[in-house]
Amino acid sequence: MLEIKELTARSDDGNDILKGINLTVHPGEVHAIMGPNGSGKSTLSSVIAGNPKFIKTGGSLRFMGEEIDELSPEERAHKGIFLSFQYPVEIPGVTVNNFIKTAINEKRHSQGLEDMPAGELLRMIKEKAALVELDPRFLSRSLNEGFSGGEKKRAEIFQMAALSPRLAILDETDSGLDIDALRIVANGVNKLKSPENATIVITHYQRLLDYIVPDYVHVLYKGRIIKTGGRELALELEEKGYDWLIKDYQ
């Protein structure tokens, strides 16, 4: 599904951040990407989603068997890539409801479909909100404006549920969540899991991985994946920290 080979990228102000990433994700898999702050985790997810702030300088990035370099972020989204932001953006004056309607209908237009009938849309939105235990009152509030950290993350997973992507990348969706919110968000992600879709969970802590069980755990450091293992690697990192791993890369 996602094939990344020797991917290098820099920021628009000229910093080389990704220095040769290799990562392959198949349908049905859950990958966790861990690593200290500043390693390039958010940059990697931004580059996959097509953030124009970063420039791909080498390697290849393929999704569903196709190079996606030239695709705009919205075209990548239409192909089924979803990025849950570490810092979701506040958009005053645009309700969650209207925002998700716009997103769904723009995707349908890209597939040559008409707008989703209003009744169907309403039912679907309600159902997905229930899935992440999002209070329906949030649907008529301005997107992310005045939301707590946990509410923002829940709104992200709600959008993911409504858009049903093939590949979901969750960038530190667990940071700032208390244990209840964490459980709700993880439940939402687990309920959406299927043999056809895949998830990349970016996290600092092993905690989230108690709820979303990964098939692979990767450690990203200074723009490279320096170690890959199974679930037990996350437990080991929890216990021993990163120092033993990164000492050779200082």
Binding site: S46, A49, G50, N51, P52, K53, S72, P73, E74, R76, A77, H78, I81, F82, L83, F85, P88, V89, I91, F99, T102, A103, I104, E106, K107, S110, Q159, L163
Partner: peptide, 13 residues
């Protein structure tokens, strides 16, 4: 720019 990318990443042109 961040807000534009955020919306585009949700499939909004």
């Amino acid at each position: 720019a961040d807000a534009l990318f955020y919306m585009q990443s949700r499939g909004i042109n």
